[in-house]
Simulated assay, not measured.
Amino acid sequence: MKVEASADRIQARKRGARAGQRWGNALFILPFLVVYLLMLVIPLFKGIWISLLEVDMLSNSADFVGLDNYVELFSDEIFIGAVLNTFYFVLISTPVFIALGLALALALNRPGRTGATLRAIFFGSSVLSVTIVTLVWKLVLMPHHGMLANITESVGLPSLSLLTSETWALPTIAVVTVWWIIGLPMMLFLAALQQIPREIYEAAALDNASRWRTLWSITLPSIRRTVALVAIIEVILQFQLFGQAQLMTQGGPNNSSRPIVQFIYEAGFRNWELGYAAAASQVLFAMMLVAMAFQVWLSSRKQAY
């Protein structure tokens, strides 16, 4: 009996120790959980509630209108154009980020001062503010007086006005965006490439594998998770296009470069239609969720095969 009582006390102590450890672990994540709830979860549900209201900012009153804001959104030609512009921007910029970031990482994945210097140069533009980047590029793209105009005129070509063209305004913003933040995907790919064991490449070299064969059979399969990560990150970031379009074209010409975030900004802070802007922001959130889910599903299928 004494042995059984002693065993029961030992088990009780172990259960108490495990319970104390669980509470200790919970205390470690408590600060993050509090910040997450205050900064993300509560504002998300607050935004959903505001999207169901018609808010008068001047009289500080709000009337419940249900889904009227959403119905009005999808009959608003400017909003539909902003949605199409945003999808178009994501489609033309995200593949470039992946392909160019990987190409730069492959080219600069080597020891020495030259590689380190070039990595610093390519990553350096990422630390610049959007104001500086757009100011520099507006000077470059200035019709008749900018650097691009001087180059085209020196070879006998007419001056290009890319930012005032409905066809080329958004692709030009995409080029500027890629130039600005290509350093992030490049560094992510570099980190993934440096995790691949060198012995695998040495074995491929002994088998006389070509560079393309090594790339397709060793490098890309080894970094497929990083490719999926970069794709998800860039989709999320490019759906939030705002500063470049606002500062370079102000959504023009003829709304051809207006993204959803700029539409939300104008509805909320220029027209003071807070409920309308909140509804547009919920649509943007849903679009980002769908795009992310599709990307995760696509990457999981590739890994399965």
Rank of each mutant, 00 (worst) to 15 (best):
G81N: 13
E266C: 09
I200D: 07
S125C: 02
V3F: 12
S125G: 05
Y70G: 03
L206N: 03
I264R: 01
T226K: 06
Y276M: 08
W180N: 03
N85C: 01
I42K: 10
A293C: 12
A279C: 05
I223N: 07
I260E: 00
M292N: 13
L44P: 00
L102I: 02
P171C: 03
L102Y: 04
F242P: 05
G243F: 01
N271D: 14
V140N: 07
T167K: 13
P253T: 01
A7W: 04
F269R: 06
V155N: 11
T152P: 03
L104I: 08
W216I: 08
L193W: 14
V261E: 05
P143E: 13
P253R: 04
Y201P: 02
I181S: 15
W168R: 03
V55F: 07
Y305A: 14
F28S: 06
G183R: 06
G66Y: 04
S165D: 09
S75M: 13
I50M: 13
D68Q: 15
M186T: 07
T167Y: 10
M186K: 09
W23P: 00
L237Y: 14
I236E: 03
I42A: 15
E234M: 12
V136F: 10
L67F: 15
V127D: 09
L237W: 15
P158T: 07
L274S: 03
H144R: 14
T152I: 02
P31G: 07
S257E: 08
L237H: 13
A26V: 12
V140W: 06
V136H: 00
Q246Y: 13
A279V: 06
A203V: 11
W272Q: 11
Q295I: 15
A267H: 04
T152E: 03
A116C: 00
W49A: 15
A191E: 07
L170E: 02
Q246S: 10
F239D: 04
V127E: 06
Y265S: 08
P158I: 05
Q303I: 13
W272K: 10
P31L: 06
R270C: 01
E153C: 02
I264N: 04
H144M: 11
I264K: 00
P259C: 02
K46G: 13
I200S: 12
